[in-house]
């Protein structure tokens, strides 16, 4: 069983990137980017999530090969829930 052990230096590096991204997202929110404010905020959040998943949750080096498909499935069905619900709400006039 050859198991991958990442070094603490990598973890600290990831942690620093997460902190930097947190600062960036707070700063970016103060700048008027129009509709892009939300997009930037969510992109940064997703970037942070990807870092956490790949390195802190060890998905990059996982020996269990079903994990990536499982994550993909979760995201796909979450997308279905949001998208198909919005198919109703986005095409409807609100009171």
């Amino acid at each position: 069983m050859s198991e991958h052990i990442s070094s603490p230096r990598l973890y600290v590096g990831i942690w620093l990137s997460l902190m930097v991204l947190t600062v960036v997202t707070v700063v970016a929110a103060q700048i008027d980017l129009g509709a892009f404010n939300t997009i930037v905020a969510l992109t940064i959040a997703s970037l942070k999530a990807v870092l956490v998943v790949l390195f802190f949750m060890h998905v990059k080096y996982a020996h269990e090969r079903m994990i990536k498909p499982v994550i993909a499935a979760a995201l796909f069905f979450l997308f279905l829930l949001l998208a198909l619900s919005m198919a109703d709400f986005a095409t409807r006039l609100w009171i």
């Binding site: 929110a29 939300t38 905020a41 959040a45 956490v52």
Partner: peptide, 16 residues
């Protein structure tokens, strides 16, 4: 990760 999303969604709407 949930918090990573909650933070911008709840705290950072139209802050500018």
């Amino acid at each position: 990760i949930i918090w990573i999303y909650l933070f911008p969604l709840l705290y950072l709407i139209d802050r500018h």
